[in-house]
Design a protein around this nucleic acid. Structure first.
Lengths: 194, 194
DNA sequence: GTCTATATATCGATAGAC
DNA sequence: GTCTATCGATATATAGAC
């Protein structure tokens, strides 16, 4: 008879470690994160993580892949969301700024920018280009342009700028003085509007 | 007779190491930067840096202080710059995005956000609050409001958002697809405008 | 399964040869 | 003045006790 309870526990343990690791990685980056920090955050001993994961790099790569998948999912969701182009972009922006998504975005940012990443994570990151995100949003933006809501001109260029701005805000949010950016999304969207 | 040539060489060596260190620190952060990376970037051996600087932390703290001084100088310059409030803010923004200033801004960002910084750098950073930057720009912004160029409402809040956005762009710039943000400053300024 | 103790690798910093 | 070799500290990863 299979001991389902035990299997659940193992998965829960893994999730517990991953959750702790995500928080620290997103804040401190790969090299800035020590396994002892992850262990402390998870409330376990330093050595125990290695019963559930092979290495620090493996955990990092795993989280990066999850983060990218989450990002893709967020883009798919925006298409389903019924509303004007402006409302769709606003909803997507709010989702990016959402507490649950922030850590993932920060992690990808770390992987994109800050360090020599493990080869597994490197591969995932290379497949995941900013262009990929933008290109899926272009149709929505163009529709907004046709309706006279968004500025004319190069859609790709404007969206790259916009999402750089949002990404930048997420990066800042963690540290800079407590401010609820979600209230300010309308200001950000002015970048794109006529 | 003093050997001026030798003294120049020593200072030049120091500057060479500092320049290399700034580039790596700005990209990788304090813990992500290895002394071997700095040495390689400067084209010297790993041990030689220690003839010119006491420690990695000392170089980092030194650069942070220089960066903050540069930032303060940029703010002083904007006041001297004659022009409309909009032109002044545009000039300041362009200066922030300028290649020569970017690395310094990135470094301060690293010190503000990513890690446990050496106590010397910590002190400099604590004296240098984002508020300090904002508060000096508020008068310019308010003048623009009175002239009907900028949006009404809380000047502090709007400027915090604006500079978070610019900081975010600088952070992205290093890695995201080659794009000359300076051409897009007018789009950014729309955040502040009516 | 979890912890403590330890082997191994890496990096900051120093010493010594040239 | 610069490099190479090495020490000491710290961190990753493993081994062994419970």
């Amino acid at each position: 008879m299979p001991r389902i309870e035990k299997m659940q526990s193992e998965q829960e343990r893994k999730d517990q470690i991953k959750k702790a690791a995500l928080k620290i990685f997103a804040e401190k980056g790969l090299v800035g994160t020590k396994m002892s920090m992850i262990a402390e955050e998870a409330g376990i001993s330093q050595g125990l993580s290695y019963r559930y994961f092979e290495s620090k790099d493996e955990i990092f790569a795993l989280l990066v892949e999850e983060a990218i998948e989450e990002s893709r999912k967020a883009i798919r969701d925006i298409a389903k969301f019924s509303g004007s182009p402006l409302e769709q972009l606003k909803a997507f922006t709010l989702q990016m700024l959402d507490e649950n998504h922030r850590l993932y975005f920060l992690l990808v940012q770390q992987a994109l920018t800050l360090e020599v990443v493990p080869s597994k994570a490197r591969e995932a990151i290379e497949r995941y280009s900013p262009q990929e995100t933008i290109e899926q949003i272009i149709p929505i933006f163009v529709r907004g342009q046709q309706e006279g809501v968004f500025s004319e001109g190069d859609a790709y260029k404007q969206l790259i700028l916009y999402f750089s701005v949002v990404n930048g805000l997420i990066l800042q949010d963690a540290k800079v003085i407590g401010m609820d950016w979600t209230q300010e999304v309308d200001l950000l969207l002015k970048i794109l509007m006529k």
